[in-house]
Design a protein around this nucleic acid. Structure first.
Length: 945
RNA sequence: UGCUGCGUAGCUCAGAGGCAGAGCAAUCGCUUGAUAAGCGAUAGGCCGUCGGUUCAAUCCCGACCGCAGCAACCA
């Protein structure tokens, strides 16, 4: 209207209403406010207050898998820690005493490398250890800060670390236990070896560069002509001499040759040539033409057979007087060479595995190459030579012996040490193992069998993890426990100088060393003298320089933490281990093996795995793709609760997709939940449950229905929490807030809340329902939206600090009471809501046509079949409130239909209903009779809505 | 290459051998007493592809494609 009607009484009209009022802000401002909560929780020791409240409840332990103490946390760490926090808090709310002791994995190569980068290589072990310890300590502090910022509650001031001297000592004791039980043995294994380092390299220390070698085709002379003839289906070979030919780029491995590999299914050809010195050749049929041409020879295939037929036939070594048998191998290819591979088990992984599979014993493996790259002096012809220098000499030697077919320069990508840029080799070395299949000293089953049984006894989330871990354990080789490292827990063995045997009192000695380490950390092993321990025997023994695999560190935390440093807080076995799916191979696996060796069972009852974070297109996050989302940045911009909500709302069993758009959607969801709670708080601000609560059976019917819906939502949410399906929890909560509350109940309720007498039963009934709903919702959201839930809780408990009132002191184990005839009640109101949907649609049609604006401007008439009709009539005058219209009448008819027309009556200034009785009271000419009654009279009775 | 898992609306996720669902986003309205809010309506899908089983398949089976994790002394 042009002449804007002045509304002098708008303010006074509002003053007669009960409008929402709350200090709980609409916007979370999480990035700014969350850090204050974290500081408050830390300062007031909320975690310990929670533990104190939970004392005496059954204990439920999630044992933290330790992240590696290096580098800032990335989104994967955040997902992992948030999931753990949600699980722990949900168990807490479910009525358990659920402690959380975070931990860190501290030893190992990445930190050693950091130290090397900073201080250079060649530091004495003690110094490496001291610097590593200091470095890890710094890293832990940084990571800890970020984890705490995520809202994760736990014993942050007393975490466990694998480098804690006590844990290091207990780890040595764990080694003793598996040693005493008879699982530990020594054997050969090929490792990446750098001559300049004089030690083994980890895979991460290996890089590939081009290298030019001499590639040779070498003949292994026939030694078993009759067997060969038979294999090729001939009565007799047409000539007495012949060669099986191999191709290799590492002539230096030939002195260690112990076998020849053929593919069992490839066709191999017997070739008759025109060369009198080499009248017969064996090579893969497919390679015949190429090879003959390259050697300048002519010949024809006179017979073929599959590789299978040549199994275990012997040939003569090209320059030593010994035989090499044929072993079959699937890894042989026809891309290059002759289709036949020479095998030196000490210098190749496949070679080693295949020779071992064919029965070669460790003691029989030839290992002529020393740690410095020279052949042992005892090696005939080449003893004492550096292997790279020996390469051409070996070629010459074979030329003289007549076994060389061809030698040429060959450039290929080859492994190099990343420090020295020098070529490295695979080299079989002595290592310590835990045996998967050996019989332990007790009558127990083998480790493999025990572990497989333990997997069967474990509950997996999701279920497919069981098959996966099972397959891994069923197929894995023995566990190599030893590493050639410095920043690690020593394999504190005393080894006989000559025989290499362990000292007969090894068990006791390990305990003695553990006592020292408990005081001085692993550094103590460096300084202790053999004499102190062994007295006169000292001259015969040396300290084993190996360290334990870092997987043994984390894999024994059930000993060193659950039963060690934090035994008072935790328990063995843990109820759950929870990690990314990569840890089937890692921590789940190593922990299972050590616990099976020590305890004969898994250290956990349940295993939960989550996937990895990818971008919106399902691609892995990487700097080069520019799709990395950092948890720090999310916390600083949107807030940790947004990140937590994203984690919870995503199905973590697969990949977790994350992008700016996804975060935007999550933020929308957050706002919806937050605002719903704000509405609930704002409409119960003047409500004191201890005085004003209306008994359930006296509530208006729609309020009882709301309680029934809440119960249903809570049941779904609690069940989903129990199955760790948090995305279904959030779906239930969000659906409830949007559909049941926002889209229906709260919308309908506004009239009663705002316009009825402030302390009237009608309004108190609504508030009672809102109060109960709030109590339920805040508990259900707390494990996920921890910051927001605490903020709500503090609004509900003004003036109390967090140790006096925390939502985490509560449980959700007292469900809301069931309204009478709950099933029928829900059924009845579901039906009403269906009618309501039709009504809103009908109003929308009229609105589009310009007939009405607000739905209160409409008067509706519903035609319904008899059964439904009585249901609608039952609500009497309250029916119009369900549809938020000014009038709702019903009449009988065959088909359900809705007729909408704009009200001809005047609009009440106060309740906005269009009524014929507006102005009946002279004090308020703009008010209707209903409002007058609510303000000054008996007020309305709202039995239904 | 092998093992494991995943693939439903723009996004996050439900679903069940028999008409494909929700929230958010989009579009269009209403409201201005949840207001940097709230309500409604509309639109949006070869349920990864190809075969098989079945009266009927998005669902069960097989193959393939795409993505991810593990296959290494990598935390």
């Amino acid at each position: 209207m042009e002449n804007k009607p002045t509304k002098p009484d708008t303010q006074s009209t509002k003053a007669t209403l009960n409008l929402p009022d709350t200090p709980f802000p609409m916007r979370g401002d999480l990035a700014k406010r969350e850090p204050k909560w974290v500081a408050d929780w830390t300062e007031k020791k909320l975690y310990h207050a929670i533990r104190a409240k939970a004392a005496g409840r059954p204990k439920w332990v999630l044992h933290d898998g330790p992240p590696y103490a290096n580098g800032d946390i990335h989104i994967g760490h955040a997902v992992n820690k948030v999931l753990k926090d949600i699980v722990v808090k949900s168990k807490l709310m479910a009525g358990y005493d659920a402690p959380y002791v975070p931990g860190w994995d501290c030893h190992g190569m990445p930190i050693e490398i950091q130290i090397e980068k900073k201080y250079g290589k060649g530091l004495p072990p003690q110094e490496v250890q001291a610097k590593s310890r200091a470095y890890a300590t710094e890293q832990i502090e940084k990571q800890k800060k970020d984890f705490m910022r995520l809202g994760v509650l736990g014993e942050w001031e007393n975490p466990y670390t694998t480098m804690n001297p006590r844990n290091e000592a207990d780890e040595i004791r764990a080694l003793r236990k598996i040693y005493d039980a008879g699982y530990v043995f020594r054997g050969l294994k090929p490792v990446n070896w750098c001559f300049d380092c004089g030690s083994a390299l980890a895979e991460a220390e290996v890089e590939y560069q081009d290298k030019t070698d001499i590639a040779v085709d070498v003949g292994f002379a026939f030694a078993e002509n009759d067997r060969l003839a038979k294999a090729f289906g001939l009565l007799k070979l047409p000539h007495d001499t012949g060669y099986l030919v191999i191709w290799t780029t590492t002539p230096w491995t030939l002195p260690a040759n112990q076998a020849l590999n053929l593919h069992p299914e490839f066709e191999y050809a017997l070739v008759e040539t025109t060369d009198v010195a080499r009248p017969l050749l064996i090579l893969a049929k497919e390679r015949v033409e190429t090879c003959l041409a390259s050697w300048g020879m002519q010949g024809k295939v006179i017979a073929t057979c599959p590789g299978q037929a040549l199994d275990h036939i012997n040939f003569r070594h090209p320059f030593y007087d010994r035989l090499s048998p044929v072993y079959l191998g699937d890894y042989v290819t026809l891309d290059t060479g002759t289709g036949i591979v020479h095998s030196s088990p000490a210098y190749g992984i496949e070679d080693f595995l295949s020779c071992r599979a064919n029965g070669l014993k460790d003691a029989d493996v030839l290992t002529p190459v020393m740690g410095d790259g020279k052949y042992a002096e005892s090696l005939p012809e080449f003893g004492g030579m550096m292997i790279w220098d020996a390469n051409p000499k070996i070629v010459e030697h074979m030329r003289e012996k007549g076994s060389l077919f061809k030698a040429e320069k060959f450039t290929h990508s080859y492994m190099h040490c990343w420090r020295h840029r020098t070529p490295i080799i695979y080299r079989a070395t002595n290592q310590w193992f835990a045996g998967m299949d050996i019989a332990p000293k007790s009558d127990a089953d083998s480790l493999r069998k025990t572990a497989l049984a333990a997997i069967d006894a474990t509950q997996f989330f999701p279920g497919w993890g069981k098959a996966r871990l099972h397959a891994m354990i069923a197929n894995r080789p023995d566990w190599t426990l030893s590493r050639q490292r410095q920043w690690g827990v020593p394999m504190a063995f005393f080894v006989h100088r000559e025989t290499g045997a362990l000292h007969p009192r090894t068990g006791e000695l390990l305990e003695a060393v553990a006592k020292r380490v408990e005081q001085g950390g692993i550094e103590a092993w460096q300084t202790l003298s053999v004499e102190d321990f062994l007295g006169a025997e000292a001259k015969d023994y040396v300290k084993n320089p190996d360290t334990l695999d870092v997987w043994f560190d984390s894999g024994t935390t059930h000993e060193t933490v659950l039963r060690g440093s934090h035994a008072a807080q935790l328990k063995f076995p843990a109820d759950m281990y929870l990690e990314g799916s990569d840890q089937h191979r890692g921590w789940f696996h190593s922990s299972l093996l050590t616990s099976c060796m020590i305890n004969g069972r898994a250290p956990y009852d349940q295993l939960l795995t989550h996937g990895f974070v990818v971008d919106q297109n399902g691609r892995k996050m990487s700097k080069s793709l520019g799709n990395v989302v950092s948890p720090q940045k999310v916390c600083d911009s949107l807030g940790a609760d947004i990140l937590r909500l994203w984690v919870a709302a995503t199905d973590y069993s697969g990949e977790l997709a994350l992008s700016d758009e996804i975060l935007k959607r999550v933020t929308e969801t957050y706002r919806r939940i937050r605002n719903t709670l704000r509405f609930l708080l704002a409409n119960t601000a003047d409500f004191d449950a201890s005085k004003d609560l209306v008994p359930l059976e006296e509530m208006s019917e729609i309020d009882r229905y709301a309680i029934a819906m809440t119960r249903d939502m809570a049941k779904h949410a609690v069940d989903a929490y129990g199955r760790y399906e948090f995305h279904l929890v959030m779906q239930a909560i969000q659906g409830f807030c949007s559909e049941d509350l926002g889209g229906f109940y709260l919308d309908v309720l506004k009239d009663r809340l705002y316009t009825c007498g402030a302390t009237s039963k009608a309004r108190r009934s609504a508030q009672s329902a809102l109060h109960l709903i709030t109590q339920q919702l805040v508990r259900l959201m707390a494990p996920v939206l921890s910051f927001t839930a605490e903020e709500i809780w503090s609004t509900l408990n003004p003036g109390k600090n967090v140790t006096e009132a925390s939502v985490f002191f509560e449980t959700w184990n007292e469900p809301l009471p069931a309204p009478a005839n709950e099933v029928a009640l829900v059924e009845r109101w579901s039906q009403l809501r269906e009618v309501r949907t039709m009504v809103t649609k009908a109003i929308e049609d009229v609105r589009t046509a310009g007939g009405v604006g607000s739905s209160l401007q409409a008067e509706i008439s519903i035609t319904a079949p008899a059964a439904l009709l009585s249901e609608l009539e039952r609500l009497g005058d309250d029916l119009k409130f369900v549809f938020i219209t000014s009038q709702a009448t019903v009449k009988e008819g065959a088909e359900l239909s809705v007729d909408v027309k704009p009200s001809a009556a005047a609009k009440c200034d106060r309740c906005w209903h269009y009524r014929s009785d507006v102005g009946v009271d002279a004090r308020h000419p703009g008010f209707c009779a209903r409002c007058i009654s609510n303000l000054y009279g008996a007020g309305e009775t709202r039995a239904f809505a």
